[in-house]
Design a protein around this nucleic acid. Sequence first.
DNA 1: ACATCCATGTAGCGATGCTACATCGTCAGT
DNA 2: ACTGACGATGTAGCATCGCTACATGGATGT
Lengths: 307, 307
Amino acid sequence: MDVRRLDLLRELAERGSVTAVAEATGRTPSAVSQQLKVLEREAGAPLTERSGRGIVLTSAGHALARSAADVAIALARADAVWDEFRNDPSGEVTLLTFPTIGATMLPAVLTELQQVPGLVVRATDFDPELAEFAELTADYDIVLAHTMPGVLPWGGRGLRVVPLLTEPLDIGLPATHRLAGRSHLTASDLVEETWLGVPPGFPFERILHAIEQQGGRRVEIAQRFSDMRIVEAFIQAGFGVAFVPRYTSGTLPPELVLKPLRGVPSARQIVALVRPDVAERLAVRTVLDVLVAKAAELGAGGAGAGA
Amino acid sequence: MDVRRLDLLRELAERGSVTAVAEATGRTPSAVSQQLKVLEREAGAPLTERSGRGIVLTSAGHALARSAADVAIALARADAVWDEFRNDPSGEVTLLTFPTIGATMLPAVLTELQQVPGLVVRATDFDPELAEFAELTADYDIVLAHTMPGVLPWGGRGLRVVPLLTEPLDIGLPATHRLAGRSHLTASDLVEETWLGVPPGFPFERILHAIEQQGGRRVEIAQRFSDMRIVEAFIQAGFGVAFVPRYTSGTLPPELVLKPLRGVPSARQIVALVRPDVAERLAVRTVLDVLVAKAAELGAGGAGAGA
DNA sequence: ACATCCATGTAGCGATGCTACATCGTCAGT
DNA sequence: ACTGACGATGTAGCATCGCTACATGGATGT
């Protein structure tokens, strides 16, 4: 049982196609196919079977891939122990962030991490509507994701979920709005309003449904945006009200005020998603530690300012 | 960090010399040396240093070797899971036994294991005086060892110790002996006797010391043998009394009787020693299971006959 | 001082794993 | 149904890697 081949099988289990594995590992599909064939011969049982144009793992293949993941973890742990021994987190950590938190927290995080010699963080942002967070852990070491509390759709995938922040979602209003003087708002205040929503399927939607249910009528959603900058601009321009995350919106212009929502739980959970094997790496753990610390600062400081 | 190289380092940690690793893995010392050099380059720190003619691991080397052992375990576990999945314990299990238990238990064990298709057990016996039990786990999958209860000198080595049997050590007497009618014996009965001992350093010696201490005088040791057959013959011939393991002596001739010793704890612990990574293999675990079961039978049946 | 033992260099060879290219089966669009 | 695209898999050839054989050098003990 060669480890490199087992690792290929693990990748196949995650990515689902020979071609995808080949791209991810920088090889030709032919090479991957050959190696899988050899592994199959070594294992003594078919690991894949054809399904349409592609292939799927057999149950045997899944079983072996699971073990392969454990081996990958042990190997990564060996690396981590070694890094710790040398006290030198080595290598590059790739990080994927959604825009709001990327703008708010990441600069401070990366600044702090510059202190660590030999550690290179390569961060990218992405459109959260585009793809599933979990899929992306195959390509990035750390994926910053957000979801509603209680809903953790990626727990079953065997991913490590590191909670960073529970961020209240306040209601953003123009400073001139009739409700702008209130200390807080309720569902009945808000069902009358025109809303700026998110594209269908986004987690924020659930809260809006809760407001509708509690307020007794449907709200009007005038526009749908995923980018917070646009939403803020539209709030200011008087096109409606919207959920605005309390901490990760940066400095808001004075024309825009945030009011907490009462009676309806409105918060989003911000977490870091990591594959268990990459979570073993010291470099990755170092980045995670700083992320957690900065998120805590943000939560404490932001809560103080918000209260 | 290549796994094959890590494994070589693990072997080096166990065997202590490049030449020994080369022999054990069927390579030339040059090949081993080269691979270790590459690993050292990859690791970025010296792993070995010269010590006289040979080499020793640096502390860094030890740290990495430890992780390498964990990787070996994960890899072996993958094999085991796979074997279990196919429900087919594959491969060969090598077993090293000391003579007494080899004669008593092993035939039944191997008979039972013949039922298992595809499992080959290769057993060898050895002179227990020759070498340290623990060292031998590098060359054999399972090493049957015996020691006094409470004394487990191989616990610290990271070996898995599977207890098989706590075997009382009775006193063997000629049937014509003045004490042969007793139901049991005490230390004061025995300090007067001429003894057949074991070579110096053998575990049985401790019990004899306890008898001397409790009986108030030193006993006379006429001969020293390690082989039980010889001891039994000498007992019958009237040359003295000796410790005889209760269960593992096979069928004794009627000229020889066994009497339990009271007042002095006299038993030996029979255990199986296994390296943790090989302990993961299903084939090895299968053999261990049968060993434990047969030892339990022997203990139950032998205790019934002895009481 | 000499023979011995152990680790380690060097040259060369063979196995292994890759790429490039070809082939075959499946699916979607017209 | 035909066709083009896609995905997996064969085949030939090439580069790299790990091995052996042999030589070297330092440490040991007689």
